[in-house]
Amino acid sequence: MSETITANLPSRDFARTEAFYARLGFETRFRDDGWMILGLGDTQAEFFPHPEVDPKTSWFSACLRSDDIEALHARFSGAGLPTDRLSIPRLTGIFKHASAPRMFALVDEDGSLWRVIDQGDLPG
């Protein structure tokens, strides 16, 4: 038996979301008017239409665990996203808080927060 959990995130416009994530290296695996699946390596994220989501107040989020966050951060940095604290979209540098694993954050154009977590830094 094999199970998978995927992030389900809002998209104000599938074409814009698809183009944004393509800049980060994601590929389109499925798309119709009501659903879109984008993949990166062995993982994927699913998007649903939500034209009224406000990027400034969005509370949607996902975690992406990686065994090489430096390489993934370098790849995402190639998209030229802003790095300041208020821009949407934006990309942070790699950081570590207290007992949390090393990570960086990505906020997409619809305000969804991705926590990209160093899998090697996780307990157990």
Rank of each mutant, 00 (worst) to 15 (best):
residue 1 M to W: 06
residue 3 E to N: 13
residue 3 E to L: 15
residue 4 T to M: 10
residue 4 T to Y: 08
residue 5 I to T: 07
residue 6 T to W: 06
residue 7 A to D: 08
residue 9 L to K: 00
residue 10 P to V: 14
residue 10 P to D: 11
residue 10 P to Y: 10
residue 11 S to E: 07
residue 14 F to Q: 03
residue 15 A to R: 08
residue 16 R to Q: 14
residue 19 A to P: 11
residue 20 F to P: 02
residue 20 F to I: 07
residue 25 G to S: 09
residue 25 G to Q: 08
residue 26 F to D: 09
residue 26 F to T: 11
residue 29 R to C: 05
residue 30 F to V: 04
residue 32 D to C: 12
residue 34 G to W: 11
residue 35 W to Y: 15
residue 36 M to Q: 03
residue 37 I to D: 10
residue 37 I to N: 13
residue 37 I to H: 12
residue 37 I to L: 11
residue 41 G to C: 09
residue 41 G to W: 05
residue 42 D to I: 06
residue 42 D to Y: 03
residue 45 A to G: 03
residue 45 A to E: 05
residue 45 A to Y: 06
residue 48 F to H: 13
residue 48 F to C: 01
residue 48 F to T: 01
residue 49 P to H: 07
residue 50 H to R: 11
residue 52 E to T: 15
residue 52 E to V: 08
residue 54 D to M: 05
residue 54 D to F: 04
residue 55 P to F: 04
residue 58 S to M: 01
residue 64 L to T: 01
residue 64 L to Q: 04
residue 70 E to F: 09
residue 70 E to P: 01
residue 70 E to Q: 13
residue 70 E to W: 05
residue 71 A to R: 14
residue 74 A to Q: 12
residue 75 R to S: 13
residue 79 A to N: 10
residue 82 P to C: 01
residue 83 T to H: 14
residue 83 T to P: 02
residue 84 D to H: 09
residue 85 R to V: 05
residue 86 L to M: 08
residue 86 L to A: 15
residue 89 P to T: 02
residue 90 R to D: 02
residue 90 R to V: 01
residue 91 L to D: 00
residue 92 T to L: 01
residue 94 I to E: 02
residue 95 F to A: 14
residue 95 F to M: 14
residue 95 F to G: 07
residue 95 F to H: 09
residue 96 K to E: 14
residue 96 K to N: 12
residue 97 H to G: 00
residue 98 A to F: 04
residue 99 S to H: 06
residue 100 A to M: 15
residue 101 P to G: 08
residue 105 A to Q: 14
residue 106 L to Y: 06
residue 106 L to N: 05
residue 107 V to N: 00
residue 108 D to L: 08
residue 109 E to S: 03
residue 110 D to Q: 03
residue 112 S to V: 02
residue 116 V to G: 06
residue 116 V to W: 12
residue 118 D to E: 10
residue 119 Q to P: 00
residue 121 D to H: 08
residue 123 P to L: 10
